[in-house]
């Protein structure tokens, strides 16, 4: 029996269990690490026959459900820093708008694809490698891993962070820092996410851990809270401007992902910070390797539809 379902906006029929399974896996990662999972799901959807623009837009739609489900679970456990989330979100919106302008500029100059891809690979490689070795070192050092890794090495960044004005205490994260820091970092991540065409969860999570010194469990919940708003905005924009949201596709994916997100949030509570970080690092590095292979291996066809990134 054929369990395929025809997706009206994607214009293709895909096996329903395959979609439920993909949604489940990505939802699990979302609940576990606080990432939207778009950087993983969008290429997988393209691989199974969904047009790239529809894959990205419908993915945002299903992330709304997964992040709502994940945020709810984390909020109940008291691991969402709403204050920090709102400041990061404001920065993200400003940075996102700037990023859209930047990408236009890059396209005008040509070489945009090259700059984007190289930035993506270097970014993923840098973040992934740093997280991996830092967490590995902490795990090997036993309980030392539970200590905030940054206390021992005051850097230029740390001195700058201490001297910025408007210091505020973020109770949920138990950190006191200038409100300018999450705002500026939000702008930076928002701009990078817009340039690279991703939600930015996998950049935001390391930023919260290493630059804002937030505890890993609060990072996951707060990141999901922020992603909820970002993806709501993207879904409505994509539906209005590009008409590329396939609701049926999103609905099937989200049935899988909301369940996966709950399971991910539960597992997240059972793992310690360094175990979570090292798993996240492995996934980030795997995506980087996949992108790198895409750059190094000859493509199947030397021509592709435009707008298919």
């Amino acid at each position: 029996m054929d369990f395929s379902i025809y997706l009206p906006v994607a214009g293709n029929a895909i096996n329903i269990f395959l979609l439920l399974g993909l949604g489940g896996v990505v939802g699990f990662l979302s609940g576990l690490f606080g990432v939207g999972g778009g950087f993983l799901l969008t290429p997988l959807l393209i691989m199974i026959g969904v047009p790239p623009t529809v894959a990205a837009a419908s993915d945002s739609n299903q992330i709304v459900a997964a992040s709502a489900s994940g945020t709810y679970a984390h909020a109940r456990a008291g691991s969402v820093d709403f204050k920090m989330g709102v400041v990061l979100l404001i920065g993200g919106i400003i940075g996102g708008s700037g990023g859209v302008f930047l990408i236009k500029l890059l396209r005008m100059l040509g070489e945009a694809d090259f700059v984007i891809t190289i930035t993506y690979v270097l970014m993923l490689g840098g973040i992934g490698t740093y997280m991996f070795f830092e967490s590995l070192e902490n795990l090997r050092g036993g309980k030392r891993g539970r200590q905030p890794a940054v206390e021992s090495r005051p850097s230029v960044y740390a001195r700058l962070a201490r001297n910025l004005p408007w210091r505020v205490h973020f109770r949920q994260s138990n950190v006191t820092l200038s409100i300018l820091m999450p705002l500026l970092l939000g702008v930076l991540v928002g701009a990078l996410a817009a340039v690279m065409g991703v939600g930015g969860g996998f950049i935001m999570v390391p930023v919260m851990v290493y630059l804002l010194r937030m505890p890993m469990h609060v990072v996951v919940g707060t990141s999901l809270f922020q992603i909820l708003f970002t993806c709501t905005n993207v879904t409505i924009l994509q539906a209005t401007v590009n008409h590329t949201v396939d609701f049926l596709l999103a609905l099937i994916l989200l049935f899988g992902s909301v369940v996966g997100a709950q399971l991910g949030a539960r597992v997240s509570k059972r793992l310690n910070a360094d175990q979570l970080k090292i798993l996240m690092a492995i996934i980030v590095l795997a995506v980087m390797v996949r992108m790198l292979l895409g750059l190094l291996l000859p493509p199947e066809t030397l021509i592709a539809y435009k707008g298919g990134e």
């Binding site: 739609n61 709304v64 945020t71 409505i236 999103a250 989200l254 909301v258």
Partner: peptide
């Protein structure tokens, strides 16, 4: 699409 996604997400939660 967003309302339904939010509803399903929160109800599952």
């Amino acid at each position: 699409a967003v309302i339904i996604a939010l509803g399903v997400g929160l109800l599952t939660g």
